[in-house]
Design a protein around this nucleic acid. Structure first.
Length: 554
RNA sequence: UGGGGCUUAGCCAAGUUGGUUAAGGCACCGGACUUUGACUCCGGCACUCAUAGGUUCAAAUCCUAUAGCCCCAGCCA
């Protein structure tokens, strides 16, 4: 396909791609998303997915999903399934281009043999410790291994033995012969193959030698015809090596590696290692815990793919180290859900209110918009009677100035219903407020157009007779402020990171309740429905994110 | 310490073939509106681009030096 007019670049990667296209280095764009199946995807991977799949999509090219499964000690099928599922959920598809590096083991082996024959690879019998020692340091150049100049025949023989399983783990490795004096440590004869008898999740015991990343990755890219290998910054040092292996392999196709900075989110962990640690310590349920920024956790929490994608796009692609404020993530889920999710009334901490001048036994049905911003979501009937619940947070004995809720002697509007005025407060023996006695004003009915006076605010409520009991889980930041980088995760995790409110009540007359449906609790925030796996009949509302502000002082 | 990167507001981030008042978003602060203290709307928010010099009529953009931060010494990826 001829790219006569370059697509407008929205970041530096696309600028490079445009240049390559203009110079005719590549005709079509092919990228790849190369996760190692050793954990669940998290928000950081969403960025990579978006860059890899998104760039391909933008250039009308293709993106391969390739699992970098070259280390049998870490990988598992459980993770390849979750990764595939998460990518689909995010809205991307690899079509029939699902690859595994392990599918290339035979080709890679042949290339290694060819490199031995060309004199650029050798079998080294130095121990792990000796190799480290011979590698030198940042300032001290490395020394050649005594095995570095073995004959091709000898190397071939030993490599054959490695492959056939005649040798023990750690006995020797295959190394690239480059330059032990290089200022770039990656070029000091990197290991290409090591021996491991751990069964591989896909190839079982077929192989006992496994290629290292630096060798397998560039060649997998070349084998697949990848034009642009987009990866994170820590691989910048590896680029010369990447190019060297492509060159030495004799493969025709020459992919180009371009690096970008990973995304970090404040007050969240975007490290697979640390997330894994949290699960192991039992500080979170598992990889799908809603407090985590794993894709599965965010999904359970109620985040939508759109919100995640918009967030990543807004955060941008650059090369500077950065930490994006988690408020930005929250902004995008609010924005996405604002017009999508129905507004319903719920009280998290119920407080009984009796409307003393409302006829006993009478029930009337009030009209309520399901979403005032989005009329196509329709309306619903809300039952109203003499006794209702409001939220304890909406009543104060001694209201501060500018308080816009209920207090003794003050009048507020019950959303969708009437003005009520608080006349009396009832307490129990412990002095705890148990009930409010109020009167309502019939002429202030919602929709009546009453303009006679202004209420002191609008609060939400549910009917005592018809509201439904629910369990609400409120998720706060997993970490105490500023502690997210703590090496001691046990003390960094906030005990308030998950609060369970067992007595909450919600209107029960709205639509059908389905798992994964999202609702706005008026004033309180956005919630998603989850079923308790142990008590499938129990309805749990997980808070996705709260509304912007509550009562601000001053 | 050798090598590789990075540095524009509280947080991200455009802008880098040098040329009028340095995009946009998040956060924040005013004000309007309001049957959600939400939403929406209007306004504010970098005389300055890590620092110091230099070149130029003109520099965030070019040159020089300095500082700070990140990555690399796995038979992990």
């Amino acid at each position: 396909m001829n790219q006569a007019k370059p697509i407008k670049a929205s970041n530096f990667i696309e600028k490079f791609i445009n240049e390559d296209l203009e110079q005719g280095i590549y005709q079509t764009i092919c990228t790849r998303f190369p996760p190692e199946p050793n954990g669940f995807l998290h928000i950081g991977h969403v960025k990579a997915v978006m860059i890899d799949f998104g760039t391909a999509r933008k250039y009308n090219g293709i993106c391969n999903l390739r699992f970098d499964d070259t280390n049998p000690n870490a990988e598992d099928d459980e993770f390849v399934e979750s990764i595939k599922n998460d990518i689909h959920w995010l809205g991307f598809d690899w079509g029939d281009r699902l690859y595994f590096c392990s599918d290339y083991f035979a080709s890679l082996y042949e290339i290694a043999v060819r490199m031995i024959k060309n004199g650029v690879a050798y079998v080294d019998h130095l121990s792990k410790e000796e190799i480290r020692d011979y590698r030198g340091t940042f300032t001290v150049p490395g020394r050649d291994s005594p095995y570095r100049n073995r004959s091709v025949e000898e190397n071939l023989m030993w490599f054959e033995k490695m492959k056939k399983g005649c040798l023990a783990e750690g006995e020797c490795v295959l190394r690239a012969k480059i330059d032990m004096q290089s200022p770039n440590l990656n070029m000091r004869d990197p290991v290409m193959y090591r021996i491991s008898y751990t069964p591989h999740h896909r190839t079982g015991s077929e192989w006992c030698i496994y290629p290292m990343y630096d060798f397998s990755h560039p060649l997998s890219d070349a084998l697949e015809g990848v034009s642009h290998s987009l990866c994170s910054k820590e691989y910048e040092d590896h680029r010369p090596l990447y190019n060297w292996f492509v060159e030495q392999s004799g493969l025709e196709h020459k992919p180009r590696q371009i690096e970008f900075a990973r995304i970090h989110v404040s007050n969240a962990l975007t490290s697979k290692r640390k997330i894994k640690k949290l699960t192991e310590l039992g500080l979170v349920e598992d990889w799908t815990d809603p407090r985590l920024v794993t894709v599965a956790g965010l999904r359970r929490r109620g985040y939508t793919p759109e919100a995640l994608l918009n967030f990543i796009e807004a955060a941008g692609v650059a090369k500077a180290d950065s930490v994006v404020d988690i408020e930005m993530l929250e902004h995008f889920i609010r924005e996405d859900l604002k017009e999508k999710s129905p507004c319903v009334m719920a009280v998290l901490r119920p407080l009984k209110v009796t409307i003393t001048n409302y006829p006993e036994g009478e029930i009337e049905y009030l009209e309520a918009d399901n979403n005032p911003k989005n009329p196509v979501m329709g309306r619903r009937k809300v039952p109203f009677s003499r006794t209702v619940y409001i939220d304890r947070a909406d009543f104060k004995m001694d209201p501060p100035k500018k308080y816009k809720r209920l207090a003794p002697g003050l009048e507020v509007r019950l959303k969708h219903a009437y003005f009520i005025k608080c006349n009396e407060v009832i307490r129990d023996a412990q002095g705890e407020i148990t009930e409010l006695l109020c009167t309502y004003d019939q002429q202030t009915k919602s929709g009546s157009g009453f303009k006679g006076r202004k209420p002191n605010g609008t609060i939400h409520w549910v009917d005592t007779g018809t509201s439904q009991h629910i369990e609400v889980r409120v998720f706060n930041n997993l970490f105490k402020p500023g502690q997210e980088d703590s090496s001691n995760l046990e003390t960094a995790v906030s005990p308030d990171s998950r609060v369970i409110l067992p007595n909450a009540r919600i209107e029960c007359n709205f639509l059908d309740i389905n798992v994964n449906d999202r609702y706005q609790f008026i004033r309180d925030g956005f919630y998603v429905i989850e079923k308790d796996s142990e008590q499938p009949d129990k309805t749990i509302f997980n808070r996705i994110v709260s509304l912007k502000s509550t009562w601000k002082k001053k």
